[in-house]
Amino acid sequence: MTIWGALAGGLVGTVVLTSGLRIAQELGWTRMDIPLLLGTAFTENRSRANVVGYVLHFVNGLLFALAYYAVFAAVGHAGWLFGLGLGFVHALFAGGALVTVLLPAVHPRMGTPWSDAEETPLLEPPGFLLRNYGDQTAFGTLLAHLAYGAIVGGFAAHLAGWT
């Protein structure tokens, strides 16, 4: 029941996060495109990459919701405010280590400081705090993850009966 609550929150939260980042692109805040970044790790075809990327991003959203649930269960407390705090940590992790360091390390088409770009077409790396994709990227990412965390926390608390 509580896991389903967290998963439902993860699903809704990922929709909000993805839509929020897309709106940030349209508003001219950022060039970050998470589905494209994820999908091009598996295929060079842009259309296929977008489809694969969206699927992966939703799977990731559910997995992170489970991680949030583990923290809620360990602490014995859930709520939108607690989720908001976890969302802040999540944003720091995503912007600081996950996308900035880990993704370039495993992404076969993304540049690193050691790339010479001669063999494979390379995607522009995100840079520290994702600044390569626009100065407002970190801000947009933070807002989107705060929303995600609050939604997961709220759903988990409501469906689990925790307060």
């Binding site: 060039r31 494979t120 995607l123």
Partner: peptide, 14 residues
């Protein structure tokens, strides 16, 4: 050139 997405850096061959 890119717009609203990460830049693709081309190789000479491609």
């Amino acid at each position: 050139v890119t717009h609203r997405e990460p830049a693709v850096i081309p190789t000479r061959r491609n």
